[in-house]
Amino acid sequence: MSSPCGPEHAPTGDVGAALMMIDSRLRAVHGGKTEPDREQQKMVEQFAASLGPGGIDELLDGACTLIYMYMKWLRMAYEDHDKDVIEYVVPNLVATMRMMTMSIPREVIPTMAGLVIAAGTGLSPNLWRKQYGYWTKEEMTPLEATAFLLAEHINNITEDPDFATRLIATALSEAYED
């Protein structure tokens, strides 16, 4: 039976822009930077400002599509080892977010866990979230962090710091070819 939160009903959004932001964060972290790169932050802020209201929605939907795609890959990887993706991903994600006290308000952690669980069970994270109203300002950084942490988890599993980015870039290339 089809769910109204099924991925077939969800907008994909601007996956390319969302991937660019996540890849940029991954590169900054793996470049050994402990302080935020002011130039990069300025560029991201200018990019976000240039999107306008509709563009922000496209970016949000794109980030949720990344979360869905990452969780789909993780689900298949864990199932290959007879493990449950929710059991192995969600507790780690929540524990990591709880340590990120300066950028992740505690009250949004359950929402981010819900997004990941929705994606891990084959539902669209953006449609699951939209059941509860529009995104809040407090959820923006945690949403980006969720996509980042899932990408980082995939990169750690594969022992390849660019695997998660290539995974999505390949899927986008194949989609454009079709």
Rank of each mutant, 00 (worst) to 15 (best):
residue 168 I to H: 00
residue 83 K to S: 14
residue 123 L to Y: 15
residue 72 K to V: 10
residue 50 S to F: 05
residue 129 R to M: 12
residue 137 K to W: 14
residue 140 M to W: 13
residue 119 A to L: 09
residue 66 L to D: 02
residue 77 A to E: 13
residue 149 L to Y: 13
residue 70 Y to N: 03
residue 10 A to H: 00
residue 73 W to Q: 15
residue 134 Y to R: 07
residue 37 D to L: 07
residue 48 A to Q: 12
residue 67 I to R: 00
residue 66 L to V: 03
residue 41 Q to I: 09
residue 103 S to I: 15
residue 171 A to I: 04
residue 33 K to Y: 11
residue 69 M to I: 00
residue 150 L to W: 00
residue 82 D to F: 15
residue 57 D to S: 10
residue 23 D to C: 08
residue 150 L to C: 04
residue 158 T to F: 02
residue 27 R to K: 12
residue 147 A to H: 02
residue 14 D to E: 00
residue 108 V to G: 07
residue 16 G to C: 04
residue 162 D to T: 11
residue 41 Q to L: 09
residue 73 W to Y: 13
residue 139 E to H: 05
residue 98 R to M: 14
residue 3 S to C: 01
residue 33 K to D: 10
residue 19 L to F: 03
residue 107 E to C: 08
residue 61 D to N: 09
residue 108 V to W: 00
residue 60 L to C: 07
residue 2 S to V: 11
residue 106 R to C: 05
residue 178 D to I: 06
residue 168 I to A: 02
residue 142 P to S: 06
residue 124 S to L: 06
residue 89 V to P: 08
residue 91 P to M: 14
residue 113 A to G: 10
residue 5 C to R: 07
residue 115 L to G: 10
residue 110 P to W: 01
residue 94 V to T: 14
residue 80 D to P: 00
residue 141 T to I: 13
residue 174 E to H: 08
residue 161 P to H: 04
residue 79 E to K: 15
residue 160 D to R: 02
residue 127 L to H: 03
residue 157 I to H: 05
residue 77 A to R: 14
residue 80 D to W: 01
residue 16 G to H: 03
residue 21 M to E: 11
residue 138 E to R: 15
residue 147 A to N: 03
residue 25 R to E: 11
residue 135 W to T: 14
residue 161 P to Q: 02
residue 83 K to I: 01
residue 115 L to V: 08
residue 169 A to P: 04
residue 11 P to R: 09
residue 52 G to H: 05
residue 141 T to E: 13
residue 33 K to L: 12
residue 63 A to W: 02
residue 94 V to I: 15
residue 65 T to A: 10
residue 177 E to R: 10
residue 37 D to C: 13
residue 12 T to D: 05
residue 170 T to C: 04
residue 175 A to G: 01
residue 161 P to W: 02
residue 105 P to C: 08
residue 111 T to V: 14
residue 97 M to I: 03
residue 39 E to M: 08
residue 98 R to G: 02
residue 76 M to N: 13
residue 154 I to G: 04
residue 94 V to E: 15
residue 31 G to D: 11
residue 16 G to Y: 01
residue 58 E to T: 03
